[in-house]
Design a protein around this nucleic acid. Structure first.
Lengths: 330, 330
DNA sequence: CACATCTATGCAACCGCTTGCACGCTTTAT
DNA sequence: ATAAAGCGTGCAAGCGGTTGCATAGATGTG
């Protein structure tokens, strides 16, 4: 049916093992033989069966990217998809396939199957799913966690952006702009990255601290912040856990006719495509999602290649200053 | 090294073929034998090697989702990632893996390799890559185009939302609200979906038509529309090709102090997460991306199962009415 | 009771490629 | 001249399953 390696061998007048060696650039082969083999491959439009190849060689030629999403929203969160782009790019360069799998509510089954059924040579895991028991089944299988794992027990390898540093950046910037009472808005306080951002905020802040958690929606941020903004001693600046929170805050300020940035400074995490088109444009703690994906994939391949590379990589965040926090003329 | 089917067979005291049949629920096997085999599998923590399985059975157990993205932005476009979620879900139910691959600037190589190297049993293709020569190499390999292909020659199977109908919905709604001079804003006029949306707009419109293309950015929409809004006979409503265009328009209106919705009605395609938090919230032609992905995957599996199912599925869009177009009290 | 039929399982070939080993032929060293 | 080393290639045994065919025992039939 399909063209096989022995068809090529026959046509080229050599043994199939020779064809295999030519394809894989293995042993020393005469240029002349190579030419004949290549010619035969071209003539027959030969494509090696990757399954047979993998079975024989023991390498699957694929990596798995596991997501932990209960709904489309989480899945399409822009953090994930941006990184995915970079991951795919690295994989493509290495000749690897990328398999994505939603591991939500499978209790590690997804991950276990991917590994044990030999579907992938390595895994990129979400920080939410790693737990000691999972890590035990993962063992020394090559993996990298994309984000700082919620539980560190047994986890030795991850790539993340430095959330504490991000908050630090935001707070210092606001302080430089003369804001005094800086609060923190938004985020599920159970999620690791939120905890770290809040920690960074608390460390950086000099005055009184105020943290207002939300459920992640714009609406909730809006209503949570409304009453507080009406008080006399209200904060004069916010670090927002994400763009949703910032949107809720913007809405509340507008309603209460609080001027931004003169009466209120805002910095938010994550550079959403629309963040620069709000009114006023938002100052952002930018996470280089591309670099994040790239580094994660690179590290994974290092581990696949030589079962080493237990390391944690931390990427710095960047401040993009826009109107929402620029009180002082430059 | 790894546990194989014959290890299980040995422990259960049967032949490996029996184990295989138990796993696949094939022939009639005594309940007692089944039990012994299952027990052995459990005891040894046996996971069948999917590569060997695929090689022997001729099915790869994976489908490929090809994207055509030059940058992370396009890749993470929310249309794609939302549909991907649904696709993965369907695949998971069928026990299939999802491979994603960026086919940009590979001239069909990506697609060809996925097929011919037996990496996938079926393909979901982006409308931009299909062209007659590609379709020839695809042949009767199971595929579904997600979106209406730019070239129809040789393409027999796709799933798309009805863009014409979407524009129709938008225009009629605006007319009902009493808007008179309805224009169309945004979109690359070379992209198929834009063309169809514009076509729908032109068909639905009764008065004079006005189409203002953009390069897809908010900025460009803003600047493109600014001058026109200053004219006396300016449009009193816009159908926007996407959220970016709508944002640009909002900004321009704000600057010129044009009241929405009293002096200007706005309807935009695509229900971005932030679309309901603009000021005022945007009326949206909503595309059910989840359903789109679901139907695409379902159709693909129908084709994989029985090499049939040459069909085109068109999904209706939905209007979500919000303030930006609600001039008349209900 | 002999023979046809069915059921449960074993046997072995095969899926298409990789790779350790062997072998014959050159080339180099002694 | 002869042994040692090196090079290019073939042979065949896997990799870990699936599956058509064979077979032995159980069941049914006249």
């Amino acid at each position: 049916m399909a063209v096989t390696i022995s068809d090529v061998a026959k046509l080229a007048g050599v043994n199939s093992s020779t064809v295999s060696r030519v394809i894989n650039g293995k042993a020393s082969i005469t240029q002349e033989t190579k030419d004949r083999v290549y010619a035969a491959m071209k003539e027959l439009d030969f494509h090696p069966n990757s399954l047979a190849r993998s079975l024989a060689s023991g390498l699957c030629g694929a990596i798995g990217v596991v997501v932990d999403a209960r709904d489309a929203e989480a899945f399409s969160n822009f953090f994930f998809s941006r990184s995915l782009f970079a991951i795919e790019q690295v994989a493509q360069e290495k000749g690897y396939q990328v398999i994505i799998a939603n591991g939500a509510q499978s209790k590690g089954r997804t991950i276990e199957n991917l590994m044990k059924e030999r579907k992938v040579d390595g895994l990129i895991l979400p920080p939410t799913t790693v737990n000691p028991s999972l890590m035990e089944t993962v063992g020394d299988f090559p993996y990298v966690v994309l984000g700082t794992p919620d539980t560190l027990r047994g986890v030795t390898c991850w790539v993340d952006n430095n959330n504490e540093q991000g908050s630090d950046l935001a707070v210092h910037h606001l302080q430089e702009q003369g804001y005094q009472r800086i609060a923190y808005l938004g985020g599920n306080q159970k999620r690791g990255f939120t905890i770290r951002r809040v920690r960074g905020y608390k460390k950086a802040i000099s005055g009184e601290e105020l943290v207002i958690p939300t459920d992640g929606t714009t609406e909730n941020a809006y209503s949570s912040v409304l009453e507080i903004l009406k008080t006399k001693e209200r904060p004069d600046a916010f670090v927002c856990n994400d763009n949703m929170a910032a949107f809720g805050l913007l809405k509340a300020c507008k309603e209460l006719k609080i001027q931004i940035p003169s009466e209120m400074g805002i910095v938010a995490f994550d550079n959403y495509p629309l963040a620069e088109y709000t009114d006023p444009p938002l100052t952002i703690v930018d996470i280089d999602t591309g670099m994040l994906g790239d580094q994660t994939a690179q590290l994974l391949f290092r581990r696949i290649d030589k079962r080493s590379g237990n390391q944690q990589i931390m990427l710095s965040t960047n401040l993009i200053v826009r109107e929402s926090s620029e009180r002082l003329a430059k």
